Simulated scan of single mutants.
Amino acid sequence: MDVLVALTRRTTERERRALTDALLAVSGRRAYEGPARPVGLSHSRGDQEGVSGLKLPGSFS
C-alpha cells in the first residue's frame, strides 16, 4: 500500500515517531497488528507543485 501525506506544516519529532511506529505495526514481515503488508509512505507540503492540485479528503481523525 502506498500512502501520500500532504502536510501544511513541519511535523514534530514526536509526530514522526508516532507515525513510524503505527506504520511499522502493520508493514512488512515484522508486522504485529493486522495483515502484514508492505507500506510505502511519501510526504510533501500541500503547497508544493504536483500536490496543490489534488483534491484532498477531510480529516481522518
Rank of each mutant, 00 (worst) to 15 (best):
residue 59 S to C: 11
residue 5 V to L: 05
residue 27 S to Q: 00
residue 42 S to V: 10
residue 12 T to I: 06
residue 59 S to F: 14
residue 12 T to V: 10
residue 49 E to N: 01
residue 18 A to C: 06
residue 17 R to W: 10
residue 42 S to Y: 10
residue 17 R to F: 03
residue 45 R to T: 09
residue 23 L to K: 00
residue 36 A to W: 05
residue 35 P to L: 13
residue 40 G to R: 12
residue 32 Y to D: 09
residue 23 L to R: 05
residue 10 R to T: 09
residue 57 P to R: 02
residue 32 Y to E: 11
residue 13 E to Q: 03
residue 52 S to T: 10
residue 41 L to C: 11
residue 55 K to G: 12
residue 30 R to P: 01
residue 19 L to W: 01
residue 61 S to L: 14
residue 46 G to P: 13
residue 11 T to G: 04
residue 5 V to P: 05
residue 43 H to P: 01
residue 18 A to I: 03
residue 44 S to L: 06
residue 31 A to S: 15
residue 19 L to T: 00
residue 61 S to Y: 13
residue 30 R to H: 09
residue 19 L to E: 01
residue 10 R to Q: 13
residue 44 S to E: 08
residue 35 P to H: 11
residue 61 S to A: 12
residue 54 L to D: 02
residue 48 Q to S: 13
residue 15 E to W: 06
residue 31 A to K: 12
residue 11 T to W: 08
residue 26 V to N: 00
residue 58 G to S: 08
residue 39 V to N: 07
residue 40 G to M: 09
residue 29 R to N: 10
residue 37 R to Y: 03
residue 50 G to H: 10
residue 57 P to N: 07
residue 14 R to P: 08
residue 23 L to D: 08
residue 9 R to A: 10
residue 3 V to K: 07
residue 6 A to D: 01
residue 21 D to I: 04
residue 20 T to M: 08
residue 9 R to I: 04
residue 37 R to L: 06
residue 53 G to M: 09
residue 61 S to V: 05
residue 31 A to P: 05
residue 54 L to F: 09
residue 18 A to R: 02
residue 7 L to P: 03
residue 23 L to V: 15
residue 49 E to Q: 11
residue 44 S to D: 06
residue 30 R to L: 01
residue 54 L to H: 08
residue 55 K to L: 14
residue 4 L to Y: 05
residue 19 L to K: 01
residue 53 G to Y: 03
residue 46 G to C: 12
residue 38 P to W: 02
residue 49 E to F: 02
residue 17 R to M: 02
residue 45 R to I: 01
residue 18 A to M: 02
residue 45 R to C: 09
residue 51 V to F: 14
residue 48 Q to Y: 07
residue 47 D to N: 15
residue 30 R to T: 09
residue 6 A to K: 03
residue 25 A to L: 04
residue 41 L to E: 09
residue 5 V to S: 04
residue 27 S to Y: 04
residue 9 R to S: 11
residue 3 V to D: 04
residue 54 L to M: 11
residue 6 A to E: 03
residue 19 L to Q: 06
residue 46 G to V: 11
residue 21 D to Y: 02
residue 60 F to W: 15
residue 7 L to E: 00
residue 60 F to E: 14
residue 3 V to L: 14
residue 59 S to W: 14
residue 7 L to Q: 07
residue 51 V to A: 15
residue 32 Y to I: 09
residue 43 H to C: 12
residue 22 A to M: 10
residue 39 V to W: 02
residue 21 D to A: 02
residue 20 T to P: 07
residue 8 T to E: 03
residue 32 Y to P: 00
residue 47 D to G: 15
residue 29 R to S: 11
residue 27 S to C: 08
residue 48 Q to V: 11
residue 15 E to L: 07
residue 37 R to S: 09
residue 5 V to C: 03
residue 17 R to V: 08
residue 25 A to Y: 05
residue 6 A to V: 06
residue 28 G to M: 01
residue 14 R to W: 05
residue 57 P to Y: 00
residue 16 R to Q: 14
residue 61 S to H: 13
residue 58 G to L: 09
residue 49 E to A: 15
residue 7 L to N: 00
residue 39 V to Q: 03
residue 43 H to L: 15
residue 39 V to R: 05
residue 5 V to D: 04
